[in-house]
Simulated scan of single mutants.
Amino acid sequence: MKQNIEIEFKNLLTENEYNSLFEGLHLKTKDVFSQENIYFDTVNFDLKSKKLALRIRIKEDTAEITLKSPHKKHLLETNITISLAEAYSIKKSTVYFASGMIADVLKSYDLDPRTPLKIFAQLKTERVEQINRNSIIVLDKNYYADKIDYELEVESLSAEEGEQLIDNLMNDFSIPKRKTLNKIIRAYNALHSKTADD
Rank of each mutant, 00 (worst) to 15 (best):
F97P: 01
H192E: 10
Y88C: 09
D110Y: 09
T180K: 13
M170R: 14
K194H: 06
F9S: 00
Y150S: 03
I131G: 13
D41L: 14
L191Y: 01
L27H: 02
D197I: 13
S193E: 07
T125Q: 11
D197T: 14
S49A: 13
Y96W: 06
V32E: 02
L21E: 02
L54E: 02
G100D: 05
K194V: 01
Q35D: 06
S49R: 08
I90M: 11
T94S: 11
L165Y: 01
L111I: 14
T29I: 14
I131H: 14
S93Y: 11
D140G: 09
Y144W: 09
N189G: 08
Y18G: 08
H26Y: 14
S156G: 08
K50T: 05
V43K: 07
M101H: 07
E153F: 15
K179N: 08
Q35C: 13
S20E: 04
K124L: 02
E77N: 04
S69Y: 11
S135T: 02
Y18M: 07
K30Q: 14
K51I: 12
D149C: 07
Q35H: 15
D110M: 14
D61W: 09
Q3R: 12
E6S: 01
K50Y: 06
S135K: 01
D146I: 05
D61V: 13
T62L: 02
A159N: 04
E17G: 06
E60K: 15
K72Y: 03
K177Q: 08
A121H: 08
I58N: 11
S174I: 05
S99V: 03
L181S: 09
V43P: 11
L25F: 00
L25E: 01
Q130Y: 08
I65N: 00
R127P: 04
F173G: 00
K72S: 03
L84Q: 10
S34T: 14
I5E: 09
K51D: 15
N16V: 11
S20Q: 10
E64P: 00
S93W: 10
R57I: 06
A145V: 07
I38V: 14
T66L: 03
I56K: 07
D112N: 09
L52Q: 05
